[in-house]
């Protein structure tokens, strides 16, 4: 069997195909190999995670420092237990606080970490104590409506009251 020029062209063709698939998986799908060597887990418990999803980014000062690895319901205390997988380069102090934020008005939800002042850092597998839940739009509207109704009732009771509704 002799080598021919067709072999060369087919070789180039297949190489282009492999390069294309590699590009799609690495650059487009962002499959960065996050092994246990480069990341460490942390836990955080929230009353309500809203629309947070697995793989959502974890940001500190807007910089992505990790991803949400797992979300489950703690069936003893009925809180959402979120496992974060953070980059080993970024260490956070023990009084770091975590909150669920939304990118833009209707954008995806992510976890924001705010560094505390404690000199000791969180160790892998530890729990972030200070958390604040996601803002759920329906609850906000519900609170606003309740507030509005109460004010309206107060206003009817005393017509001299100011028109302080929002």
């Amino acid at each position: 069997m002799k080598r021919s020029t067709i072999d060369l062209w087919v070789g180039i063709f297949v190489a282009i195909g492999i390069a294309a698939v590699t590009f799609l998986s690495l650059k487009v799908a962002n499959l960065t190999p996050q092994s246990a060597d480069t990341s460490y887990p942390l836990y955080a418990e929230f009353d309500n995670i809203g629309g947070l999803k697995v793989k959502a980014p974890v940001k500190s000062s807007g910089v992505v420092v990790g991803r949400v690895a797992n979300i489950e319901l703690d069936t003893q205390r009925y809180l959402a237990k979120v496992t974060l997988s953070l980059d080993k380069r970024y260490q956070f102090s023990r009084d770091t606080s975590a909150e669920i934020l939304t990118a833009g008005l209707l954008g995806e939800q992510y976890i924001g970490l705010v560094q505390g002042g404690d000199p000791d850092n969180l160790k892998p597998g530890e729990r972030i104590g200070l958390t604040s839940s996601a803002l759920v739009l329906e609850q906000l509207i519900g609170k606003f409506m309740l507030n509005f109704a109460e004010k309206g009732a107060a206003k009817e009771g005393s017509p001299a009251g100011s028109s302080g509704a929002l």
Binding site: L24, K27, V28, A29, N30
Partner: peptide
């Protein structure tokens, strides 16, 4: 990169 998933999409 945020929207595309390796298994689901690629």
């Amino acid at each position: 990169q945020n929207a595309v998933d390796l298994h689901n999409d690629v």
